[in-house]
Amino acid sequence: MPPPRTQGKALRHRLAELRGGPQVPPKALDARALAALAANPGCGRRALLDGAGVDKAALARALGAPSAFGQSQFALVRGNAFEAKVKGDGGTELLRLAHERLDRAAEPPTEALVPDLTAAGPAGRTARTELALREAAENPGGWTLLDHPMLALDVAGSVAFLEPDAVIVHPDGSWTVVEIKSFPLLDGAADPAKVGAAARQAAVYVLALEEVAARLDPAPRVRHRILLVCPKDFSNLPTASAVDVRKQRAVTARQLTRLTRVEDIAAALPDGVSFSPELPAEELTAAVEAVPATYAPECLSSCELAFHCRDRSREAGAVTALGRPVRAELGGLTTVEDVLAAARGEAGDAGDPAVAALRRAAALRAEALEAARAAEVAPCP
Rank of each mutant, 00 (worst) to 15 (best):
Q7P: 01
L11C: 00
A16Y: 07
L18E: 09
R19Q: 14
P22Y: 14
Q23D: 15
L37W: 05
C43S: 14
R45D: 09
A47D: 07
K56V: 08
A58W: 08
A58G: 09
G64I: 06
S67T: 03
A68Q: 06
G70I: 04
A75K: 13
V77R: 12
R78L: 08
G79L: 01
N80M: 04
E83T: 02
D103L: 07
P109Q: 04
T110D: 11
L113R: 14
L117C: 05
A120Y: 06
G124S: 02
A132F: 00
G142S: 08
W143D: 01
L151T: 05
V155W: 02
V178W: 01
L186P: 06
D187E: 11
P192W: 05
K194V: 07
K194I: 06
V206L: 07
A219D: 05
R221S: 12
D233V: 06
V245D: 01
K247T: 06
V262Q: 03
P277T: 06
A293I: 13
Y295S: 02
E298I: 04
E304V: 08
A318S: 15
T320S: 12
G323M: 04
R324D: 10
R324M: 10
A343V: 07
A343M: 09
V355Q: 06
R359D: 15
R365G: 13
A366C: 15
L369I: 13
A374N: 12
A378P: 15
